[in-house]
Design a protein around this nucleic acid. Structure first.
Length: 281
DNA sequence: AGTTAAACCTGGTTGC
DNA sequence: TGCAACCAGGTTTAAC
């Protein structure tokens, strides 16, 4: 489910409800991708800080006591929603089901991670120097909305890769947050063939692609993300961007721009949707 | 080092 | 209806 817009929508809805909450109890059910890395009891009494996002990861600061200086205790939880994860928060959640794998009971309500496929993760990190967290975050590319990231820099990074542009976007080593839905969508909006090799992209088209990424992700965030099957924000609301998808999941349907049938192909074991007439090599 | 395939899981949909 | 095959929003790991 979750690409950058869904994770960002989750971050915002969670932060509104959870900042300053005091943790009462943590409960881990079926194992997720990795072990938690601390005892559940060691989270009790900690105070939730403002959530941050890096790529598709969420960072929840958990201070050992109220008003602790950041330098004094920079610990917290690193969360990833994987393919099918979502987070819910509230005082009266429905009883936990078979796919609810992590719960954090707090003074303001209960945070619950639901993830049928269990590709998601919750790991304790003691701070920036934490090796496990650093390993996950260190190879990540630029944030799409980082103001210091611009078209020329994007172009330079694309020039040194030979994989198809779709694969380069998905890999997240150049720019983070673009998953399988939005990769097809941004390439359509930029008029670029997903099979085009990254190093063959001109500077002008790189600029156009970056602009399309920013506009598309921004619009998706504004619409609460995409809900294909089960994504919900922390209030339980579904997203609406899927209704504005121009090519994703629309094989055989007419291109909204030229009417030619949208094509589906496979790249790196993932489906890609595009219009062979509007998107050029 | 870069690129590609396999692996991790479960559930819903499609087709015979 | 039953059941196999295929599909799904991600990322790590191993292998060319």
């Amino acid at each position: 489910m979750p690409e950058l817009p869904e994770v960002e929508v989750t971050r915002r809805s969670l932060t509104e409800q959870m900042v300053d909450a005091v943790v009462h109890e943590a409960r881990l059910g079926k194992s997720l991708r990795w072990p938690l890395g601390c005892t559940e009891a060691s989270l009790a009494g900690r105070v939730v800080g403002a959530l941050q996002r890096r790529g598709k990861y969420l960072w929840m600061p958990l201070s050992a006591r109220p008003m602790a200086a950041a330098t004094e205790d920079a610990g917290g939880l690193l969360l990833h929603l994987g393919m099918s994860g979502s987070l819910a928060f509230g005082r009266d959640l429905v009883p936990a089901g078979a796919h609810d794998h992590f719960e954090l009971t707090t003074s303001r309500g209960t945070l619950r991670l639901t993830d049928p496929r269990r590709f998601g993760a919750v790991i304790w990190s003691s701070g920036p120097g934490d090796a496990r967290a650093a390993k996950l975050l260190s190879a990540l590319g630029y944030e799409p909305f980082d103001p210091s990231f611009d078209g020329p820099q994007f172009h330079r990074l694309l020039k040194v890769r030979r994989a198809p542009i779709k694969a380069v976007l998905l890999a997240g080593q150049v720019i983070v947050g673009v998953g399988n839905i939005y990769a097809s969508e941004v390439l359509f909006r930029a008029g670029i063939d997903p099979r085009l090799r990254s190093n063959r992209i001109s500077q002008a088209r790189a600029h156009r692609l970056l602009a399309a990424i920013r506009q598309t992700l921004e619009r998706a965030i504004a619409l609460g993300g995409s809900t294909l099957r089960d994504f919900r924000d922390a209030y339980g609301s579904a997203g609406a961007f899927q209704a504005e998808a121009l090519v994703y999941g629309r094989a055989g349907l007419p291109c909204p721009n030229c009417g030619a049938p949208i094509r589906r192909l496979e790249q790196g074991q993932r489906a890609t949707y595009f219009c062979a007439r509007c998107q050029r090599r």
